[in-house]
C-alpha cells in the first residue's frame, strides 16, 4: 500500500538551517547535509529545503549545497525559495534536486507552472501555497512573499487552478497554524485534498504525534511536513512511525 509520507522541512539561510517562528524571528539549528542525512537514516520519507534568503548572489551558495545534498542523501528532496523562472528550475534539477517548489512566482503567473511542467514533467513541480483564514468563518486567502503580501486568491480556487496548470503536488501551509504546535489545519487540508487528484502535503501546526495521525485520517493528507518538532527532537521519526502504524496508518518502516 502507498504509504503516508513524513517530511522534515529545513529553512536555509546562507548555507545553514534556521527556523522561523510564525513567519517572523529566526534561529539557527544546524548543517543541511548532516541533518538531511540524519533524517534519512531516521526514516524520513522525503526532505524539503527552502532557501529563505534567495537572492541572486546567494543562489550560487544554495546550488552547491543542493549538489552536496544530492550527493549524500538517498531519498527524494524538494528545494524551493525564490524560484522565478525556467532557468532557476533547470539549475536546481541539474544539481540533483528531485522536485522544486514554487510559490509567489506561480501566483503572479500561473502559466509558469504549465511551462515548467511541460519542460521538466509535472512530477517535479510542487506548488507551495501559504494560506490564512482572516476570520473564523471566512475563506482561506493566499499570501505570497513569505506570507507578507495578501492576494485576491482563495486557497481552494488556487489549488484547483495550480492542478489544472500542471502542478504535480500541492504543499499547503496554514499560516494560522504554523508555529503554534496545536495541530494541522484539518478541515482545510481535507477539503483541498479531497477535491484534488494530485497529492497534498500538509504543513503548519505539528506539535504532537496525534496531529500527524489526524492530518492523515481526518485531513486526508498524502504527506505531512514539519520542522521544529523534528529539529528540536520533540518528536523522533522512528517513534512517530511506530505510533502511526499502531493507529493503522500505512507508513514506511
Amino acid at each position: 500500500m502507498l504509504s503516508k509520507r513524513i517530511i522534515p522541512c529545513m529553512d536555509i539561510q546562507e548555507g545553514r538551517i534556521v527556523k522561523g517562528i510564525n513567519f517572523g524571528g529566526i534561529k539557527e539549528v544546524g548543517n543541511p547535509v548532516e541533518m538531511g542525512r540524519y533524517y534519512a537514516e531516521q526514516g524520513a520519507d522525503e526532505l524539503v529545503y527552502l532557501d529563505i534568503t534567495a537572492t541572486k548572489e546567494k543562489r550560487k551558495v544554495f546550488l552547491s549545497l543542493v549538489r552536496e545534498i544530492a550527493r549524500n542523501i538517498n531519498i527524494p528532496f524538494t528545494v524551493g525559495g525564490g524560484i522565478t523562472g525556467i532557468e532557476d528550475v533547470n539549475l536546481l534539477l541539474e544539481a540533483g534536486a528531485d522536485k522544486i517548489s514554487i510559490n509567489s512566482a506561480a501566483v503572479k503567473n500561473a502559466s509558469l507552472i504549465t511551462e515548467m511542467a511541460k519542460r521538466f514533467g509535472s512530477q517535479c513541480i510542487v506548488v507551495a501555497m501559504d494560506v490564512k483564514m482572516e476570520n473564523p468563518d471566512g475563506d482561506w486567502t493566499v499570501y505570497v512573499n513569505g506570507g507578507r503580501i495578501k492576494t485576491a486568491k482563495n486557497a481552494h480556487g488556487w489549488a484547483l487552478q495550480a492542478q489544472e496548470a500542471g502542478a504535480g503536488e500541492i504543499l499547503l501551509t496554514s499560516m494560522n497554524h504554523d508555529g503554534t504546535k496545536n495541530g494541522f489545519a484539518l478541515h482545510l487540508t481535507r477539503e483541498i485534498s479531497l477535491s484534488l487528484n494530485i497529492p497534498v502535503i500538509a504543513s503548519g501546526g505539528a506539535g504532537k504525534m496525534q496531529d500527524f495521525a489526524d492530518v492523515f485520517t481526518i485531513g486526508c493528507a498524502n504527506a505531512a511536513l514539519a520542522a521544529s518538532v523534528f529539529h528540536y527532537k520533540e518528536i523522533e521519526i522512528p517513534e512517530l512511525k511506530r505510533y502511526l502504524l499502531s493507529q493503522k496508518i500505512a507508513v514506511r518502516q
Partner: peptide, 23 residues
C-alpha cells in the same frame, strides 16, 4: 485512470501521479 473519490475510505483516494513509497 484518474481514480474517482473512493467509497467508504476517502483517505485512500488514489491520486495520479502515483507519488511516494509503496511496497
Amino acid at each position: 485512470e484518474q481514480f474517482p473519490a473512493a467509497t467508504g475510505a476517502e483517505t485512500q483516494k488514489l491520486k495520479v501521479p502515483h507519488t511516494g513509497w509503496n511496497t
